[in-house]
Amino acid sequence: MDEGVFGRAAQERAIAEVEAEMARLCELLAEGMAMGVDEGREMVGGAMSEFLVEFFDLVRAEGPRPGVKSVVTLPLLVHGAETGEPGPGRPVAVLHLLWWASARYLDGLPEAAGAPSAATGGKVLTALAVGGQLPGRLIAGLPVGGPVRAALADELSRAWVDAVDGRLRRLTERASNATLASVLRGYEGGTGAPYAMAAASAARLAGADDRRTAGWRAYGRALGVLRRLADDQRDLVTGRYEDLAAGTATFPLVHLLTELPPARRREALALHASARHSASARAELAAWMLDEEIAESCAAAVAPLIDRAHGLLDMLGGDPGCVRELHRLVDGTVGRLPGLRLAVA
């Protein structure tokens, strides 16, 4: 398989096929004809369908961001690396999208003001079904042997447990006590886990053994961590400052704190405390993190994580064209970050 077989045009076709599969799934759910959603459960199927339509409308409105593209292409490329054929990895791409459809909604709930309404409660239940139970039913319906089906179910369960752990770390960790290692541990769960699931599941579907599956799982987790680091930086350079408003101990913030002398560190922590309610405090602290010297030292701290992702691919090998595209997936994740000078090979 040469480089062009799964180049940009082929990837766009694959993404369109996954979107078409999702649209078909939405129609079946709306009609109460998919995965055991039959008569008497039309309302449930309709709610799932509306939820997914809302999610994909949002994705399309945001445009082809690298993170959205990587959700779909990662499992296709891993399957292609193992077999030379990316296409059969499409079911895992659908599972990965379903997971993120659910997580995207649930992730915003702690920041929502006021008591949850009945409508919100219904959406929570729908999100849990879309991200947890619907993928399980899709796995059950795949035309594969029992051992592969069990392995795919195990990867999905592992992703949920690890992601919940990462999310809880994010909600409870305080900037004053956080370390770069503890922040990365949370990222390995919160964003790394679903990427690990997608890569490992695609490998399992391709017939990979335990050793290679573990390698692909590690690569997916590394890519997910880089995706989260990219989101951190994008939040700063766009001026949204959502992480500062939420009081989250992000990698750029904790890196800044480790670089400051004690007096300045106390000042930064005071700004961070004020940032939850003060736009000026958010802007000032963001400027500290985007300072050229701080940004360069942060890039140096991230560089080993990039090297690890590339190193895992070099170790795994496989179809040359797909492996090249997987390297580009890493570079595309970290190489489009304004304000952070990451050295991309």
Rank of each mutant, 00 (worst) to 15 (best):
E82G: 01
L236T: 06
P88Y: 07
G146E: 15
G321Q: 09
D38K: 07
S102N: 11
D231I: 02
D319K: 00
M33N: 11
E27C: 04
L98W: 10
R328W: 11
G114N: 07
A303V: 03
K69C: 12
A279I: 00
P338H: 08
S278Y: 07
A34H: 12
L226M: 05
T73D: 11
G45R: 01
R221E: 15
A16L: 02
R324Y: 12
L128G: 06
V148K: 08
V92T: 01
V92W: 01
T191Q: 09
L313T: 02
L58V: 06
E242C: 08
M48H: 13
G311A: 10
G339C: 06
S70T: 13
G114K: 02
V59R: 12
V53K: 12
A118T: 11
G136K: 00
E242T: 13
T238C: 10
I294Q: 14
A222T: 00
L205T: 00
G146L: 13
G122V: 00
A163S: 13
E31H: 11
A300Q: 14
G247H: 10
P194H: 06
L271D: 05
M22C: 12
E242S: 14
E267Q: 14
A34Q: 10
T126D: 08
T73F: 04
A153C: 04
G131H: 08
P143D: 09
A208P: 03
G207C: 06
A81C: 08
G317W: 09
G189T: 01
L223G: 02
E42G: 13
L342Y: 07
P262E: 11
P320G: 09
L52D: 09
E173C: 08
G192L: 06
L269D: 07
P91D: 08
L52K: 07
Y187M: 12
R204A: 11
A101S: 15
S201W: 05
A103Q: 09
G45K: 01
R90K: 13
D209L: 01
L313H: 09
D232N: 14
L138Y: 03
V323Y: 09
Q233L: 10
T258E: 15
W100R: 12
A61Y: 10
A93M: 09
L125C: 09
G40P: 05
E292M: 02
P75V: 09
R41A: 13
Y105I: 00
L290P: 00
L229G: 04
S182F: 04
G166S: 04
V148G: 05
A309K: 02
L337M: 15
A47F: 04
R185D: 14
A287C: 07
A14T: 01
A23I: 01
P135A: 06
R221I: 01
C298T: 14
E259R: 15
R149C: 07
G131C: 08
L290M: 15
L28I: 00
A47R: 13
A295L: 03
A343T: 12
G67C: 05
L76C: 08
S176L: 03
V344E: 09
G247K: 02
D162T: 02
A263M: 06
C298G: 06
D154F: 11
L142N: 02
A208L: 01
L156G: 05
L257R: 03
